[in-house]
């Protein structure tokens, strides 16, 4: 059956199924406040809360570039990618022991131990980093290296999920990243770094 016929078939069956209903359920009115962890957020500095909540999901929030460089060096993550727009600012903090590329070569994904890209925002209550197509220089660079560093402006931290949903905007692709990629498929044991990063870092600027 060609797709056009399937469309009509499905829609007419839907209409037929609903025709006998005397009354249809109305869209209820509510406030998303019921789905906000208010006790977690109330009275808190958002940058500080974000750091705390990231830590709960094994993420890491850093507030200066030298701390980031020290972290990467300590983990021997010396070869990586950096968004070309960020590199001029970050380069002075990186030593000669680092090899940082500003072009990402997808044929060599295993070469990059870290990837530094820009974040579109963050969500404090859940410790989430928000990425979108407009600010992420390469989707692959934020996903395939073991360490992903999202450079985040402090003014762009939302307090809760409903706020972040309201700010989704017109970007075709927005992704919330909450801690490192993980699985518990094998006997329910938590393992980090499945297909995406094993370390999720926010660098607050």
């Amino acid at each position: 059956m060609p797709p056009a016929d399937d469309r009509e078939a499905i829609l007419s069956r839907v209409r037929g199924a609903l025709a006998p209903l005397h009354e249809r359920a109305a869209l209820p009115d509510y406030t998303t406040e019921i789905a906000v962890m208010r006790s977690v957020i109330a009275g808190r500095d958002l940058a500080e809360l974000l750091g705390e909540r990231m830590k709960r999901v094994n993420g890491l929030a850093l507030s200066d570039a030298s701390a980031l460089v020290a972290h990467l060096r300590a983990g021997k993550f010396l070869h990586g990618y950096c968004d070309p727009a960020l590199w001029p600012v970050l380069a002075p903090h990186f030593g000669a022991d680092f090899k940082v590329e500003t072009e990402f070569d997808r044929t060599r994904v295993d070469d990059y131990a870290f990837g530094i890209t820009r974040a579109a925002g963050a969500i404090a209550e859940t410790g989430t980093i928000v990425l979108n197509d407009a600010t992420t220089s390469r989707r692959l660079a934020a996903l395939t290296p073991w360490v992903h560093v999202a450079v985040l402006e402090r003014t762009k931290i939302f307090s809760d999920l409903p706020q972040a949903v309201a700010a989704l905007g017109s970007d075709n692709n927005v992704i919330w990243c909450t801690g490192p990629s993980k699985t518990a498929d094998v006997e329910g044991i938590l393992i980090e770094g499945v297909h995406g990063p094993g370390q999720q870092i926010a660098l607050l600027v």
Partner: peptide, 16 residues
Amino acid sequence: VYTEFISGPKSPAQPD
């Protein structure tokens, strides 16, 4: 960990 909101193909400026 990942919550992705997709409203279409990639943005033109996005390489991936």
